[in-house]
Design a protein around this nucleic acid. Sequence first.
DNA 1: ATTGTTGCAAAGTGTTTGCACAAAC
DNA 2: GTTTGTGCAAACACTTTGCAACAAT
Lengths: 150, 150
Amino acid sequence: MNDPASKRWIQHSNDVLRRAGLRASAGRTAVVELLSRQTCLLTAQEIADQLRADGSAGSTATVYRALETLHELGLVRRFDAEGTARYEPVDPSGDHHHHIVLDETGDVVPFDDAELERAIAGIGRRLGLVVTGHEIILRGRLIEEPPESD
Amino acid sequence: MNDPASKRWIQHSNDVLRRAGLRASAGRTAVVELLSRQTCLLTAQEIADQLRADGSAGSTATVYRALETLHELGLVRRFDAEGTARYEPVDPSGDHHHHIVLDETGDVVPFDDAELERAIAGIGRRLGLVVTGHEIILRGRLIEEPPESD
DNA sequence: ATTGTTGCAAAGTGTTTGCACAAAC
DNA sequence: GTTTGTGCAAACACTTTGCAACAAT
């Protein structure tokens, strides 16, 4: 999420939070700001640690509570893997991406793919249900690029 | 997984386990048999409870250890969601399905979808990598069937 | 006999919650 | 001043582990 998108997300989040009757409190605000600067997945512990390193407030409890609220309001997406939840901002424009975990390095690379989205949209129709969310994690490895032969 | 597939999976699992130098012990065998009868995702607790209900052995520790071993050997697939891992047998023929979690009940419904598989296959090509695995969880809710008006 | 396996209970993680105080509105 | 948010520590849920007894080979 680049800088303008980051600002937009903070803005959007604050709007949604206020509309839900919640306050602009220090802890949650810090979590929102930290998340907004993040491209990709963060654990609650990472967030808490980083907040404390930055001198901001941020007890474990507050971070978890903030994340729970943000998740309920659809402002963050949550991934559960290996017993730990990871969070990332949800772009309010509806943009979203998925993740591919590289076998060798364990690196997580975000990607998106229109055909995949089409397939998912179709599944709801085919199975007779409304798909309200999806969580897709691929695993794979890069193909060594063949030298570009024009 | 229907009956012949179930038998095949037990057979295959036993082969792999023996080849790995492990024994045909009571606890693990019970876990394998229980899993083989299962269509879909089971938690470790559910497995342990059911084993004990069936009079078989099955302490939590044994179940967790068995599942860990089976997972390492590629015999089961593991899904992490909401802080709990769920397991299901991996069909040795390469067949697989995905899951949709119902918003209201939390029930997990298996499904498969050719178009989705096609899309995933295409992603590798489009991104320049080999997709070695994928994990897809949809969330949604059933559409109330309109009462059959004849 | 050897080495893998079990069960128990204790220890670990990651996450949630009760409560009293502080902050936002 | 009312209600929401915070931090701490205790409680939780799920999973892992140390250890002594046990079972498969």
